[in-house]
Amino acid sequence: MSFVIILIKASLIYGGLLGTAAAMTLAERKISAWMQLRIGPNRVGPGGVLQPLADGVKFIFKEEVTPDGANKGLFRLGPIMAAAPAMLTIAVIPFAGETTIFGIDFGLLSLTDLDIGLLFVLALSGLSVYGVILGGWASNSKYSLLGGLRASAQMVSYELSLIMTALTVVALSGSMNLREIVEVQNTGNFLDWHCFTPVVGQVGLILFVITTFAETNRHPFDFAECEPELVGGFHTEYSSMKFALFFLGEYCAMTVMACLTTVLFLGGYSVPFWEDAPWIVQVGTFMTKTAFFLFLFIWVRWTLPRFRYDQLMNLGWKIFFPIALANLLLAGAVISLS
């Protein structure tokens, strides 16, 4: 029985994740179009809603090209390593509290309830950089290699700030378990959400969101791709489904990071003024909050120009990291005072 429940949950959650990723490709194009006074894709299906399907079909039927001198095995491993970590991390995100549907007890609406949930997410998202590096190196192309190198240096630098900021939340809620982090914030009073903790919460939220952008290789930190300098960056030589897998990985990573931001700072599934809301309201609240961050990803991409690479490194090491450390100290002070 429990196996069936897990199976149902897994298929729902992964279907949701992949669906979100597909929808994000459409949203990206639609929203960018609106912001530039264009219309965007509108040919496939009503208003273009079936565009992701058409893209998928196109990707499958494209010819796969492996460049000469490419390291075949690693070239193949690249897209897998890029997509797998993002898809694994969704497992620990809690979408709603204790859930009973039609009298069947589904327990916590997440795939697994790990004590080290946050650590699990951070560890696996740290692995996602391998996809970019391997793709870049194995392509036997100078542009790809540069893209991969940049990505590796960038991700290692920004991961520090990301972890430090996440630690602030761990300190505030006293647990690494994502469910407990949400439960601490789920008091019916939305001022208990971590983003409303004076100073620490706001600084943490802003830092976390920005470092998330760097971690998922999104604008304005997408140096691994950086079209004007590096053609396509690490995926210059990729085609067909392999390229699509990189794409999918990026959008999955965005989705997971948006979920994580929601859980850490916006109280996850907690509904304002309604502590024990039914599961459907909780899921709805969670999705609304996540959708905002997903929109933010797109919104920022089509607003800001790309940083310069040295500026990026300066920003990461000389500004974000000290601020994140100071914020962690401040969080310690807040906790010991209260």
Binding site: M35, R38, T303
Partner: peptide, 16 residues
């Protein structure tokens, strides 16, 4: 400020 500008642009008439 930049984000506000792009957000406003989303609701302006299209030129396509």
């Amino acid at each position: 400020r930049g984000l506000a500008i792009t957000f406003k642009k989303m609701f302006e008439p299209r030129v396509t």
